[in-house]
Design a protein around this nucleic acid. Structure first.
Length: 844
RNA sequence: GGGCGUGUGGCGGAACGGCAGACGCAGUUGACUUAGGAUCAAAAAGAUGCAGGUUCGAAUCCUGCCAUGCCUACCA
């Protein structure tokens, strides 16, 4: 076939002019997508004999439009899944929708559309957009968490956790978003004290709520056994769980009426107990009222009110001065018997430890600042080994240094864990406390005063109290028509048909729980449902779970490190303990893709500047957009989107056009001949081919899709050069294989164009089902190596030498090379370093 | 305040401690052209944030600083 130049051209938008019979992505992409859909190419069957590979991506919230971040995320996942499929795995790559949650409800309130209809039509649209990507998504396994056949089992799992004693109800001060009119989990409150979703300032409220006992799993959640997760994520979870070892020490306080109260504290430094000079309570502490003397009541009440009114950010700001109020009474130090004044202060948090702290100003910076503010004594119980400190002259606390002083029998001990243990033993012996491990992690609050979520399947009966909905009555169906009133209660409260029910135990009239579950509950088990998405009798068939779980590769953003990823691990461990699943970790390998930013900032609808992938796809084709996104940089790094970003798409389009031209002009039916040509070009061809295989396969495996592409660009450029230089090579089998290799290696990134070219070349199978080519080091080996010659570390010459040359030969050759000989002159080399196959460094 | 990461041409980015800047974008020149914002071809450019150290040799390892990003933030 000749190169047909300058034929009549047609203009197709930004894609530019196309040769007649040229690359027309629109046409071929749609064609192949239909073919694949009809042949069921993307459906992973349960009985496939190949080893399974569960390739999972965090499912999206159906906000309505697929944005560029989704495209980026899903493309990378799909490329990897396709790559693994070509490595011989039965790849299961499902997709679904995390379909409960606030935006649907807000749309319902704002625009009067039904939350259900709004969500389902969004799903419809996103599914359509997703299909244009040409991914191997297994749509037969799609789940949507808002559908009764899914949330039936979310409710069922709630009952299981309840039966296992892991769900309980308690009154708790909770984060309340006045705008969304709902409770938020700690993780949903931003560091600045605002609501993660709407940005409103979060307040505190006391409410009866449902909790899951995730804290019971704290230690096991710290294990991370047999999983390959980014160290960063593991560290974040560790810090979030916040295990600290110390002691619980019982202090006693006398109330203004003479009653004695036990006031335990948690401390990691029981070894400083002789240095306690004051005692602190959180303003919310239950004993504050009883321990406040009458003369202090007004002052204390004012302080408590102020602390409660503070936002999280005000309260937790570390750089503000320490504040507090003396409440008039004292505790007794159980070790020294000394009387110590009690203060309340906002830097002591009710939610951590016991809400009470022993103040040791000499050895804790916060306590030190507090003591200086209130002129409280500072007593040193450690002194540095090399000098002596005077408490009055201290400007900051002395932390972890020196040896024990002023502490009776403990004096002289060094500052270490053993000493701490001696104090704990002593305290325990006297019955004043015990060793204690404390966690920063709190139980998971799952109640939401919202409509659009999975109902909590519980019933309140006047005679029988709290009664779980019997399994056979599941699902508790969410009504479709609701009225929204800004009351702070779930809208379900105002639907008598929903609320009023009969008690499963006594048959008498009873009320349903009207709160719904946190959507993180829905996402804590969706990956299990994919294994058996249509099962109406159980959440999944245990055999299918054994077949598919655990997830081999999980990909999603790092923002879920302490939320979804922690909850899903907890959930899996709880199911393991119930005997429902046989593994403790759901996600074997985790990868965080980077984020697509817009001019350095998070892309958000409110700030404009969103990029519509649909436009890019219709102008350039899905293959080009896929490759372009992956070419932006390493997948884990994400990219910044600015005016220049889209220019890179041009380069990818050119590359695809060149591949198209190369294969159409020089590719030929692979059924032709099997001649091996006696030319020197073929070994060069083989070398290029196998070097590329080695690079590209390794880079696919490590998510380095950007360098996969540059490797393939180099490869196709060198093929182009070779064929122009020696057109006869086209007659040989090596050329044919070289072209096949190009198409196979490019297929995961650009499945459509490669399929079209593959089959037009005469293959009857699909390129997407070819095995990844095997790297042959012999064929890749060069005949000559370039030896770099350095003098004192600076490059002076390069010599092409035969591959198997010995060290002596290299050194001899190098020393007599003209440039080198001149440079050395009369000097005698002190040292000659030889790195085999790479370089010689002559040290003068 | 703490933790983790990043810093390489005009831009996106490549480089097992060993030829810095692969690959691509933009720019330059030329060709084909009524035209070029299409295509093809050619050439060019710069010295790895700063200061030290280790090494025969450092973008790469170590220390300090500067800049920037993310996470976390009084957790006793």
């Amino acid at each position: 076939m000749e190169i047909q130049e300058n034929e009549q051209t047609e203009t197709t938008g930004r894609g530019g002019n196309k040769r007649a019979g040229g690359y027309n992505p629109k046409e071929i992409e749609q064609k192949w997508q239909e073919v694949w859909e009809q042949s069921g190419a993307n459906h992973a069957t349960d009985d496939d004999p190949r080893p399974k590979f569960y390739n999972l991506v965090m499912f999206p919230y159906p906000s309505g439009d697929l944005h560029i971040g989704h495209w980026y995320n899903f493309t990378g996942v799909d490329v990897y899944g396709r790559f693994m499929r070509m490595n011989g795995y039965n790849v299961m790559q499902p997709l679904g929708f995390d379909a409960f949650g606030l935006p649907a409800e807000n749309a319902a309130i704002k625009r009067g559309v039904q939350a259900r209809k709004w969500t389902l039509s969004n799903i419809e649209n996103m599914r359509r957009q997703l299909k244009t990507m040409g991914g191997i998504w297994d749509w037969e396994r799609e789940v949507a968490t808002c559908l009764p056949d899914y949330y039936k089992w979310t409710e069922w799992f709630f009952l299981k956790l309840y039966e296992a004693g892991l769900a309980y109800r308690a009154k708790a001060p909770v984060n309340w978003c006045p705008n969304d009119q709902t409770v938020l989990a700690n993780e949903q409150v931003l560091a600045n004290g605002t609501c993660e979703r709407c940005g409103a300032e979060v307040a505190k409220r006391d409410l009866e709520q449902w909790f899951f006992k995730i804290t019971a799993y704290a230690d096991r959640l710290l294990e991370f056994k047999d999983i390959e997760w980014p160290e960063k994520t593991v560290t974040m979870q560790r810090n979030w769980i916040g295990r600290s070892e110390g002691a619980r020490v019982n202090f006693t306080a006398e109330g203004s009426d003479g009653t004695v109260h036990a006031v335990p504290v948690f401390t990691t430094r029981p070894d400083t107990i002789y240095g306690v000079t004051f005692f602190l309570l959180a303003p919310e502490h239950a004993l504050v009222a009883q321990l406040t003397t009458p003369d202090k009541q007004a002052e204390v009440a004012a302080y408590v009110a102020k602390a409660r009114g503070e936002t999280e950010i005000e309260r937790q700001s570390t750089d503000k001065a320490k504040t507090g109020v003396f409440i008039g009474s004292y505790v007794t130090n159980p070790i020294t018997g000394g009387k110590i004044p009690i203060y309340i202060t906002d830097y002591v948090l009710m939610g951590y430890g016991t809400g009470a702290v022993m103040g040791v100003p000499a050895h804790d910076q916060r306590d030190f600042e507090f003591a200086r503010t209130f002129n409280l004594p500072v007593v040193l119980v450690y002194q540095p080994d090399d000098r002596e400190i005077n408490a009055d002259e201290m400007t900051e606390a002395l932390v972890h240094e020196g040896h024990v002083v002023n502490s009776g029998p403990f004096n002289g001990l060094p500052d270490n864990a053993e000493t701490v243990k001696k104090f704990i033993d002593y305290i325990a012996e006297k019955g004043l406390g015990e060793a204690k491990v404390n966690y920063r992690l709190r139980d998971w609050l799952i109640s939401r005063q919202r409509y659009w979520g999975a109902p909590i399947p519980m019933i309140y009966c006047p005679t029988d109290g709290l009664v779980p909905v019997p399994e056979e009555q599941l699902p508790v169906i969410l009504p479709e028509e609701v009225e929204f009133k800004p009351t702070g209660e779930s809208p379900l409260n105002y639907i008598p048909e929903f609320v009023n029910t009969t008690c499963p135990k006594c048959g008498g009239p009873a009320r349903r729980e009207t709160d719904t579950m946190d959507t993180f509950m829905c996402s804590s088990w969706y990956f299990l449902r994919y294994a058996d998405p249509k099962n109406a009798a159980q959440p999944f068939d245990p055999e299918l779970i054994k077949r598919w779980m655990p997830v081999d590769q999980y990909t999603g953003g790092p923002e879920h490190a302490t939320m979804h990823l922690l909850y899903a691990r907890f959930f899996t461990k709880a199911l393991y303990d119930m005997g429902i699943v046989s593994f403790e970790e759901p996600f074997k390998r985790l990868f965080h893709q980077g984020m697509i930013l817009s001019e350095g900032r998070k892309m958000s609808k409110s700030k404009g500047k969103t990029i519509a992938p649909d436009r890019l796809v219709s102008e350039n084709g899905a293959d080009a957009v896929r490759a372009f996104l992956m070419f932006l940089g390493p997948f884990e790094k994400g990219a910044d989107w600015n005016d220049k970003t889209e220019q890179l798409l041009v380069g990818i389009s050119r590359f695809l056009n060149r591949v198209w031209g190369l294969v159409n002009d020089y590719g030929k039916s692979s059924e032709n001949n099997e001649i091996t040509l006696a030319t020197s070009v073929e070994p060069r061809l083989r070398r290029a081919q196998h070097k590329t295989i080695q690079r590209v396969v390794a880079d696919y495996g490590s998510f380095q899709f950007n360098t996969v592409l540059s490797g393939l660009m180099e490869y196709s450029n060198s093929l182009q050069k070779l064929i122009e230089e020696a057109p006869a090579v086209q007659q040989g089998v090596a050329w044919d294989e070289a072209i096949d290799t190009l198409l196979i290696l490019l297929a995961p990134l650009c499945p459509h164009i490669t399929e079209e070219l593959w089959q037009s070349k005469g293959h009857r199978s699909s390129v997407n089902e070819q095995p990844m080519p095997l790297f042959n080091p012999t064929l890749a080996a060069d005949e000559l190596v370039t030896i770099v010659v350095q003098i004192n570390g600076k490059v002076r010459d390069r010599l092409d030498l035969p591959i198997g040359i010995s060290e002596e030969e290299v050194k001899a050759t190098v020393l007599f090379a003209p440039k080198i000989a001149t440079a050395i002159g009369e000097s005698i080399p002190r040292k000659v370093i030889y790195v085999p196959g790479k370089l010689v460094n002559i040290v003068l």
